[in-house]
């Protein structure tokens, strides 16, 4: 496995018709594939606007289908350019952790 983080630009993995859930799944598939060959994956949400909780719920569930919830933040880094977006993400992440506990 490579040790350098691969940066995935979320804006490049969006459903062309703008579906929120399909966009999350597209990104999720890319992340899961990268995790097969990289120890660390870095997802950049810079430039993404209006991501609701459903987007993150879908994305996070896809990622933890291949690794343990407790390893999620060790192996995947989530980067945002919006503090508002961070709040939404963190709520979804907290819900995921609570369910796993």
């Amino acid at each position: 496995m490579t040790d350098q983080p691969d940066v995935i630009d979320a804006t490049r993995h969006m459903d062309p018709d703008g579906s929120i859930v399909l966009s999350a799944r597209l990104l999720g598939r890319v992340v899961v594939r990268k995790l097969e060959s990289s120890e660390h994956v870095h997802i950049s949400f810079a430039g993404m606007r209006g991501l609701p909780s459903s987007y993150f719920n879908e994305l996070l569930q896809m990622i933890v289908s291949t690794l343990k919830t407790k390893d999620l933040c060790e192996r995947v880094k989530f980067e945002f350019d919006s503090p508002v977006q961070v709040q939404v993400f963190e709520r979804s992440l907290a819900a995921l952790r609570q369910d796993a506990a």
């Binding site: 929120i20 859930v21 209006g50 459903s54 919006s82 977006q85």
Partner: peptide, 21 residues
């Protein structure tokens, strides 16, 4: 402002996603 835009977009998308789901 960027924050206002984010809040508005997220608020709208939370509701429309609920309608869909």
């Amino acid at each position: 402002s960027k924050d206002s835009e984010d809040y508005l977009r997220i608020s709208v998308n939370e509701v429309t996603q609920n309608v869909e789901d």
